[in-house]
């Protein structure tokens, strides 16, 4: 079952276009939205969470068009924003009161147990928190009301490895029952490489790849070759070429390349680099 589905979503800005975005988040999986800064990750997320209105296309949540959702249905979409969106002047106790009146399924006990787990001070205003603490708080908020999918916009950027790992651990807990899904956008590809089942790679407002992560990592490889060999290769094998002063690097489809060529396994980071800097054949 598809929890969230985007169909041909377009959004035009003066200097940037989101073109025909279609992908879906199946039940029980983690989908990673990868792309360099400005590729359109946030725009996609904002269109799912109702913060912007796409020019055309449709977005569905459990088969229902997203504009027609009631308040309680919309709250089934959990959201964690990169800048948290929480009122920074408040302290945690007041925040609890505010959110209790906003979310129809708010669990104060759950919220407080997360706050205690992270050792967050309850009487200090949120603006005095470090970036990591703010993100932990935003996750605690998203985990304290009943939702079926969690949408996270750059949750790990700017955080130290320990906090990042804690956040990943919470996300694993969230998907334990196999019914809930996660959409996570990030340019820190190592986090996504661990957690995600599917990868949607976005480049200049267009989806370049939408595949199971393991398949991407298996299908492609990076080859270092000499210029003159390039002509002898199967054109269909070559995805992108990155020319260096001394030789060139290829992002290629492994099974179409000669078997005796040396290669190294591809990483998501490579894919980003090849697409943004590399050239076509």
């Amino acid at each position: 079952m598809k929890i969230v589905e985007l169909k041909n979503v377009c959004k035009q800005y003066s200097e940037f276009n989101l073109k025909n975005i279609s992908f879906s988040i199946p039940e029980g999986v983690v989908v990673g939205l990868v792309g360099e800064n400005g590729a359109g990750k946030s725009t996609i997320i904002k269109s799912i969470i109702n913060a912007i209105h796409p020019d055309s296309g449709q977005i569905f949540f459990k088969g229902k068009e997203i504009n027609t959702l009631s308040k309680s249905e919309r709250q089934k979409i959990g959201v964690v924003l990169d800048d948290t969106g929480l009122p920074l002047e408040l302290n945690i106790n007041t925040l609890d009161k505010v959110l209790k009146n906003i979310y129809s399924t708010w669990h104060s006990d759950k919220f407080n147990s997360y706050v205690n787990k992270f050792n967050l001070p309850k009487k200090q205003s949120i603006k005095s928190f470090s970036k990591g603490m703010k993100m932990q708080l935003a996750l605690a908020v998203a985990f304290s009301y009943d939702n079926d999918v969690l949408i996270l916009d750059e949750p790990t950027s700017g955080l130290d490895p320990v906090v990042r790992d804690e956040i990943l651990s919470m996300l694993y807990d969230y998907i334990q029952d196999g019914k809930k899904s996660v959409l996570i956008s990030s340019h820190i590809t190592s986090d996504l490489e661990k957690l995600c089942d599917y990868i949607v790679y976005l480049h200049k407002g267009k989806i370049e790849l939408d595949e199971e992560k393991d398949k991407i990592l298996e299908k492609y490889a990076v080859y270092g070759i000499e210029e003159k060999i390039l002509k002898e290769l199967d054109k269909n094998a070559i995805v992108k070429i990155l020319r260096r002063s001394y030789g060139l690097d290829l992002l290629a489809i492994k099974k179409l390349m000669p078997a005796n060529f040396e290669y190294r396994p591809v990483k998501l980071e490579d894919i980003m680099l090849f697409y943004s800097k590399g050239e076509n054949i």
Partner: peptide, 10 residues
Amino acid sequence: AKDLRISVIT
């Protein structure tokens, strides 16, 4: 998957 920090599908 959680313990090894790898994806569920893997």
